[in-house]
Design a binder for these strands. Sequence first.
DNA 1: ACAGCCTCTGACCGATCGGTCAGCTACCTT
DNA 2: AAGGTAGCTGACCGATCGGTCAGAGGCTGT
Lengths: 196, 196
Amino acid sequence: MSTRDDLRDIALKEFAVAGYAGTSLQRIAEIAGVSKSNVLYHFDSKEALLEAAIGPAIDQMAVILGSIDESLAEPKARRAFIEQFVDFLLERRLEVHMFISQGPGLEDVPVVDRANALVATLATFFSSAVSSVEDHLRFGVALGGAAYVLSAKQDPSLAEGPFEESESDEVRAALVTIVSELLAPVSVQQTHTPAR
Amino acid sequence: MSTRDDLRDIALKEFAVAGYAGTSLQRIAEIAGVSKSNVLYHFDSKEALLEAAIGPAIDQMAVILGSIDESLAEPKARRAFIEQFVDFLLERRLEVHMFISQGPGLEDVPVVDRANALVATLATFFSSAVSSVEDHLRFGVALGGAAYVLSAKQDPSLAEGPFEESESDEVRAALVTIVSELLAPVSVQQTHTPAR
DNA sequence: ACAGCCTCTGACCGATCGGTCAGCTACCTT
DNA sequence: AAGGTAGCTGACCGATCGGTCAGAGGCTGT
């Protein structure tokens, strides 16, 4: 693995656990065993490092959202989307946790604004302007709850690899069940894209 | 309202939205319209300000947890607890959001460790060692999801007062429904404290 | 052998961090 | 009137922040 990739991975982990503002370039450099200057050689700025760390996850999220069309009202399509979404949460739990917990307060960082826009898009799919307050809450609980539980599970270690092999499948299945349950009563608006 | 209370409230809001590390005493002082020295006159240190900001919420949480006994298995008692818990989330959403999103990474801050211990206690009530992975996830999704959705709802403003009067009741009722739904299948262990 | 590039470092920069300190003002007590 | 105390401020401290810069060392192509 290249030094650049090392730095990106370390930065992502530190940003997720200690926060963007709470993580210094010096600390990232020390963990990686390089100088702070070297961090700024590979990345133009701290903000550029943040973009490199969470950008791929946002790109991936955009692809997932682009693949869903208005057929989301059909139970089968919806189930497939939820599975895809849970897989995304499992694979990118650090990035998602970062965005969930630090999304506000990291405004005017371009890559974060892009992520905010994506979540807004996703929300309109599941609960448009005409849906009830409860539907909004269901969507939020599903997204925020799944993101929280994944980041909180391996709290102190925040291990690098995915979950234990044996546990991973069980977690995935349970999450799909829970999220499906949460979103089941939500009616999907499949007409036009909402006005706002 | 005294200057001290002003500072505590401002600090809580800023800590919640920008993070503890991302909020400077200078900024808190500017918002309050006082000098930074004055902040450190009312609070011995930044950490003391954090404790003053979230301590009351943790005390309140401890009281709630102390009031529940092992009768939580009965549906009526469980429902009452969920309502009490949702009310707590509504009243203390800033503190809860702070703890949820910054709990790890704020270790060795005494007041945060106390909050962590409380959540662990709560978790053992709902899902002991013998319960399934899905039960653990259900509990986590309910807690983290409810906390996220409440902090995310009023994103930019992060208004001081509670929700709009008309909307507040609806949000409360919906949250009680959703959390009850999430926790319904979870079997409560009411024998002894789990072995591990 | 030399030139050029990539990787990387230490020294250094101004700004800001949390925190200390001496002292000012206003008010209360005797 | 004198003294004490609570509330507050500006000047200042060392440490650390993100970021710049000149240059060292290694590797490749000529």
